[in-house]
Design a protein around this nucleic acid. Structure first.
Length: 183
DNA sequence: ACGAGGATGCTCT
DNA sequence: GAGCATCCTCGTC
């Protein structure tokens, strides 16, 4: 079995830090772009007041209730897209928000999509824009041969753990994981 | 480096 | 109708 799959099927608080160092590749509009994940946050479904799934299933959050390894994409502040990796166990609606990464492939395409030369992938909305991810990719499978795929990478040597960014609920939970290690 | 303010649209009450 | 899992620009220090 795919070793990545077993990690994504596990608890979100294990999967979130494990995702640091992994590569996320997109092939969208026939352009390949790829980043190494450097910042994530865990959201734990019905057990987490800050989760979009806290109050149960809805049209928007349906993907989180599906298989681990799926991609949950939502619109943020009416303007940006943000993406999460669904984790296990199935039905718990736990997910890892991908907040930032380091560009490794397709730098020119990212500059074009972002409309600027710097700060290409240092925020959740920027990450989606640079990789070309939008609402049509909600529900995409990340462990197959689709337009989006996760691949293993080098585990970072140092990981910082802090509170989550931009939320007002459950602020005491230190479920944000960041690394500054460069691959 | 850092903070304030505005843009913008969907979700759920 | 309120409230956002955000980003950009422009002001200050």
């Amino acid at each position: 079995m795919n070793p990545l799959r077993s990690i994504l099927e596990g608890p979100v608080l294990d999967a979130a830090p494990a995702l640091l160092g992994w590569r996320l590749r997109s092939r969208i509009d026939n352009v390949v772009t790829e980043i190494v994940v450097t910042e994530v946050e865990a959201y734990d479904g019905a057990n987490d007041p800050a989760s979009h799934a806290f109050r149960g299933r809805s049209p928007r959050n349906l993907t989180m209730f599906g298989e681990p390894g799926g991609l949950y994409v939502y619109r943020s502040y009416g303007i940006h897209w943000c993406m999460n990796v669904v984790t296990g166990p199935k039905g718990r609606a736990a997910a890892v928000l991908l907040r930032a990464g380091v560009p490794t492939v397709g730098h020119v395409a990212m500059v074009k999509r972002r409309g600027r030369q710097d700060h290409l992938t240092d925020g959740p909305g920027k990450l989606c824009q640079a990789l070309g991810v939008t609402g049509v990719h909600d529900g995409a499978r990340l462990l197959g041969r689709g337009v989006l795929s996760l691949k293993p990478g080098l585990a970072p040597t140092t990981v910082e753990q802090t509170g989550r960014i931009g939320i007002s609920k459950a602020v005491d939970r230190t479920w944000r994981f960041v690394t500054s290690d460069v691959v």
